[in-house]
Amino acid sequence: MSRLESALADLRLADTLASRDTALSRLDPRAKIVTTIAFLFAVVSYERHTVVALLPFLLYPVALASMGEVPWRWLARKLALAAPFAVLMGIANPVLDRTPMEVSQGVTMAGGWISFGSILLRFALTVTAALAVVAGTGMHALCAGLAALGTPRVFTAQLLFLWRYTFVLGGEGARMATAREARGGRGSPTLAVYGSLAGHLLLRAFERAERIYRAMLARGFDGEIRSVRTLRWSPRDTVFVAGWVAFFIAARAVYLPLVLGRLLTGFGG
């Protein structure tokens, strides 16, 4: 059960991070969403054995984390928690793909190792960028941005409700499990106990939904959720989007590390 509690604590932390006033949180959520999508597509558009050419893209998550004052430890921990899947899916590459590839003067590596490295790098890039944006924006601004970009209202309302009541229902679930442990319940419950435990939680969910609905009706709810929140697009947002997209295009078009390396070593070509 500590799993549920720690997940809730995690969400709360992300929310607290997002509520601070930072250079990142001041940007319009639409700017951050659009730029991050461009970033994701740029990163995944590379061929599977790409490692070095991807390195310049690290700048984006690094810049986001700095602008949003996102704690590096937090990012690293989240990355580590999510990593096993990518490792699992990539680890077969070195075994399956043994085409030799020359990495440096006289050094060859199995293509599989290179593509494995590429998977890990892609994973780190995409995950840290997404997490930094979320930690520097927050669920509410994100939903407002998504709605403004044309996401169906039903869905953004659903996201907000889910977000709000995860804290309430998650707390109830955590307390039920604590009560079970306090009375000597150890390990995972049997299916019968689970059915009753989660079942009661489900029942409470239904009852809660009914009460919320009544409370909404009492305040004039007519099917549409209105908000006084407005988004403001400023020149800063235009600069953010245009600047980064230009960088992604440049990094995709020019093999930046090689250019840099040639400048530094004097090798022409």
Partner: peptide
């Protein structure tokens, strides 16, 4: 109407 459980009533961000 002020409901008993404020969590039922406060749902906006």
């Amino acid at each position: 109407f002020v409901f008993q459980d404020a969590d039922d009533q406060l749902f906006m961000p």
